[in-house]
Write a protein that binds this DNA or RNA. Structure first.
Length: 109
DNA sequence: TGAATGACGCGCC
DNA sequence: AGGCGCGCCATTC
């Protein structure tokens, strides 16, 4: 598999990999950075192949700070455990102080 | 080639 | 205020 759009995926991986420790970002933020705000879903889709790369997908959540993708991870609370391990408070798949740990690629990057 | 899906986001009822 | 549905872009069947 070698779609030209791989650039899109690669771009997502690039940004995700640059997420600082103890920080998180949203699919929409990445999509916006890529210039595809309307393709926020693609960002999440791209993360689908993040497994096996070096992309801390666990630091990427939806714009509400909800670990929507945790279901896609290893098992169940792995994603939450990882985030908490980084100092991020997570309760019931919901990131606490989301705006505080939020990392805006378009702004920071 | 056409249709359905999906780790989102925003709007509307 | 809360819940439901639609739209977008790319990938896959």
């Amino acid at each position: 598999m070698q779609p030209e759009t791989l650039n899109f995926f690669d771009k997502v991986y690039e940004v995700a990999k640059q997420i600082p420790y103890g920080r998180v970002t949203s699919y929409g933020a990445i999509a916006m950075y890529l210039g595809a705000v309307k393709s926020a879903r693609m960002v999440g889709y791209a993360m689908n192949g993040s497994v096996g790369k070096d992309v801390p997908a666990h630091r990427v959540v939806n714009r509400k700070g909800l670990l929507t993708g945790k279901h896609h991870f290893d098992g169940t609370n792995l994603m939450q455990q990882l985030l908490e391990s980084e100092g991020i408070k997570v309760v019931d798949n919901q990131i606490q102080d989301f705006e505080k740990v939020f990392w805006n690629p378009s702004k920071e990057l």
